[in-house]
Design a protein around this nucleic acid. Structure first.
Lengths: 188, 188
DNA sequence: TGCTCCATGTAACACGTTACATGATTGC
DNA sequence: GCAATCATGTAACGTGTTACATGGAGCA
């Protein structure tokens, strides 16, 4: 149950509304744990029922339904307890690898356009990550413990994108060698 | 719905029983798409109902309930159609990154033993992948189109493990600097 | 007035996980 | 005879996805 704990972490950094959380998930934590707003609202309700969170109507709520969540001591204990448990290595569920394998047996789909698209997406993501790195973790300055750890998390993302980029280029070259332009053989 | 298509691919390579499929998933395709036997049986039943597969009692069934599945033309069409659709980039759902981030705010858990454990696991996986590489994709020999694509899929796994290994070592070094032995501060 | 964004939710469904159950075959 | 492995399944539950619904606030 990682989502709950990701939310706890995010709320410890800054008490927020569900909506704000959902948007923050699209950045920081979202690189490694994505969640829709529906998931987050469901989780917040559960966690409040478990006594991990308290909610209040914030000053800027006006007449809206906005609620702000704050981590209670029990939530903090739960998070520490969970963080100390061993974690399984993540499995790489990559849909495209399944498609590649399908193409390996079928030999009737041209996956090069898709690889080109992925190349662009990886480049974009990498540029985004590196922009965040330059902005939040400047070289030469001494960073806090918190910042140094966050930096390493970002670096993991950067490393993955760099690897994916290189691999995608190699894969494109291989497909170009296997089916050079003009040798198209749709439907075998 | 990738599982169904992963199963189709695997069955095209070799008609099999659900049990055999489940075990093959722990190797080849399993690097990028893991599935339990329950998932596979459920999927096989659905796919047979959809007319994508035909099942028969194999010669070596004896008195057992063993059934062998074979892809029908409709299944093959479905797979080709699906493979041609654009695929979203996978999201890296890495539970340990959430734990790291939790530790960044809490500063009361020592994640070094867990990192050491991950280090060993990554090394083990990498060694496994490289053993498969040496066995199935010998250098110097000309490989078939099918084999070359399969090799690239394996290489993606190898690349990921190498990156993870390097990152885990860096992370360990950082934590050693932040909390050198003897400076333990459990519960802040 | 109508558009976009903020903000929260319900409902249904797809997918994945865990626990449990059953029975045949193989090898000691 | 017993254990391990082969082989298939049911049931319950947890998590993730998609579609839809509601209403306030700010702005042109």
């Amino acid at each position: 149950m990682s989502l709950a704990h990701a939310v706890l972490t995010s709320l410890l950094e800054k008490p927020s509304s569900g909506y704000e959380l959902a948007r923050r998930f699209d950045r920081s934590i979202g690189y490694f744990w994505r969640a829709t707003h529906q998931q987050i609202y469901r989780e917040l309700a559960r966690m409040e029922a478990s006594g991990w969170l308290a909610s209040s109507v914030p000053a800027d709520a006006g007449r809206t339904r906005k609620r702000e969540y704050c981590v209670l001591a029990a939530g903090r204990r739960e998070l520490a307890q969970w963080a100390a448990q061993p974690a399984a290595l993540p499995d790489l569920r990559d849909e495209f690898m399944v498609k590649l394998r399908a193409d390996a047996v079928l030999a009737e789909v041209d996956l090069r356009p898709e690889l080109q698209r992925h190349l662009a997406l990886h480049r974009e993501k990498l540029a985004q990550y590196q922009a965040i790195e330059a902005r939040d973790f400047p070289t030469g300055r001494t960073l806090s413990r918190h910042a140094q750890i966050q930096h390493m998390i970002l670096k993991k993302g950067i490393l993955y994108e760099q690897g994916s980029l290189a691999w995608t280029q190699d894969m494109l070259e291989l497909l170009a060698r296997l089916a050079p332009p003009g040798t198209e053989r749709e439907h075998q």
